[in-house]
Design a protein around this nucleic acid. Sequence first.
DNA 1: CGGGATATTGACTCTTATCAATGCCCGTGG
DNA 2: CCACGGGCATTGATAAGAGTCAATATCCCG
Lengths: 226, 226
Amino acid sequence: MLTPSAVAETQLHRHFAVSPQRKPESSESVGQIGLAMSFGRNAEIYAEGETSGYVYKVISGVVRVSKLLPDGRRQISAFHMPGEMFGFEANEVHHASAEAVVPTKVVAYRWEGVLGTDKQPAHFVRELLKLTMLGLRHTQDHLLLLGRKNALERLAEFLLEMSARMGGSAVLDLAMPRHDIADYLGLTLETVSRMFAELKEMGTIRLESARRVHLLDRAALKALGT
Amino acid sequence: MLTPSAVAETQLHRHFAVSPQRKPESSESVGQIGLAMSFGRNAEIYAEGETSGYVYKVISGVVRVSKLLPDGRRQISAFHMPGEMFGFEANEVHHASAEAVVPTKVVAYRWEGVLGTDKQPAHFVRELLKLTMLGLRHTQDHLLLLGRKNALERLAEFLLEMSARMGGSAVLDLAMPRHDIADYLGLTLETVSRMFAELKEMGTIRLESARRVHLLDRAALKALGT
DNA sequence: CGGGATATTGACTCTTATCAATGCCCGTGG
DNA sequence: CCACGGGCATTGATAAGAGTCAATATCCCG
């Protein structure tokens, strides 16, 4: 029988001509609790179905968390930027996989799951509760996007979200390819590309290159994306 | 300026010819911490934008949690059944609204938000963390449904989810109208109706009435919905 | 038993997916 | 320094799935 992890890996190979690197390129302990790890582009940080012994904090780079269907359809639930944490689960098993979008450094912290919570300092548990609640909020907002917004609205919201998370700059450097944006927004990469073209024609953005976007008219984007 | 709460209410009036009842029909304290409340069909339990002073547990009935766009598009993020808790937020403000789908009894527990967590017993915080993580998992699964599944797959998954949560019986009594199912699945009510018809033709379900569904072939539903 | 809300069904439209061709950019090696 | 190659992105033509609008049908609930 195929384990969920094996299935996920199989699917990954459909998405990437070059198979993703397995596991960290390097790791070293940080203080007494953290373990610093480096991952190359598209390297797997953990897989769906894998036992989850850690929570992670992004130091540099970008991480995507996604779920796959047996036929290869993929939904990215979140991108994680430097400073953000990810990887916490109610059970001992990851129910999504995480990969580095670009070369990425993270710190992993040992985490025994909710059951091991007694052993964790109270402030840590409280912090984790807050982070989980914020994650839930973000995911619920994303439900609205996926369930009820059209392609243009989705891309507008995505650009505003990315801008806000990069400190609100008007020039965005997107770490991820069109394919990842599409899988985050529940679209195809062609549709994403067409919506970029449409925003460009409307004069609300300018594309310096495919990955470098100038937001020219935030108000127009907000009118679309909210 | 329209408050978010006022906007939500406006939109509700588009959805229901009869305006929803405001606030509990009755309430009485349970022990020293809980407050029992009753709500009629479509009554609002709390609104988006409202200050959140409580978490809730469903005693009987069904609750829907949803978000609205200014133009009336609605996304239901979850239905809550007896025994389940809902209404916890990272901030002091609800970022979704909750309504009773059918006449519903809940118990409300005072909750000061994450910041007030010190005052809560540790086991309660831990329990809440677990519930929030489970909610996050459910919501992420729902992202995959909304982003990547077709109408038939969505309905199949919905029926299996409902069956599982009603104890796995082969005869389902759906509390919610087609409109709510549609807003949960990111479809229109017409499409939901057509997918019911299609499952019926395939012989995987039988409709005793619109709300009462017999699951004849779970394996077929699983093949579609997973 | 009657009437209003809810659900089904049909005809047609529209958005997005699919399939396919072309273009672009960047890193590598001659 | 320029040419080549490969991944990535854009653009076009067409198809398919779900949405919209509209006409019944059915089911509760009083």
